[in-house]
């Protein structure tokens, strides 16, 4: 699978639309085949309002410029992380941005905070 199949896909739980995949969270803790571990998919970041994201404002706690930060925080309100284990099916789209791309979550899945700081990501990237 190509990652673009996931990004921008519509997300559903039991037939009810929850939003769109804005990003895919990875952790460098997979099999080590070279100098770096392979990135493992931790989960999907789902935003109810939009399938786009601007510089990760809603995940990084960036608060400047204040006007832009507040607007983007409002626009992305309710963004959550859903773990990869809670993804029941992926499919339906064969092109990035396809309106048919669809992710179905397991009933009773749990929502987690989308914030990156709580995941301790590197700050230079």
């Amino acid at each position: 699978m190509i990652l673009s199949d996931l990004v921008d896909a519509a997300v559903y739980e039991d037939g009810r639309q929850l939003g769109f995949v804005v990003d895919v969270r990875l952790a460098l803790d997979g099999p080590v085949t070279g100098l770096m571990a392979a990135p493992r998919i931790v989960g999907l970041l789902v935003s109810a309002r939009t399938s786009t994201s601007f510089m990760g404002y809603e995940r990084t706690g960036t608060n400047a410029p204040a006007v832009i930060a507040r607007y983007l925080a409002y626009r992305h309100r309710g963004t959550f992380l859903v773990l990869w284990e809670d993804v029941r099916t992926v499919g339906g789209g064969d092109a990035a941005g396809s309106a048919d791309a669809r992710v179905e979550l397991r009933p009773g899945f749990r929502r987690w905070s989308a914030a990156l700081e709580q995941h301790g990501t590197a700050s230079q990237a």
Binding site: L3, V7, V22, D23, V24, R25, L26, A27, L28, D29, G30, A37, P39, R40, V42, G43, L45, A48, R49, S53, M55, G56, R59, Y74, R77, G78, F80, L81, L83, R111, W112, S113, A114, A115, L116, Q118, H119, G120, T121, A122, A125
Partner: peptide, 24 residues
Amino acid sequence: VPDELPELPPHLRPAGRVLDARLH
């Protein structure tokens, strides 16, 4: 989406460095 939403709990930090595909 309602304007006010409850704060979500943080997920446990994975063992390795965390990256968001689109962002990083």
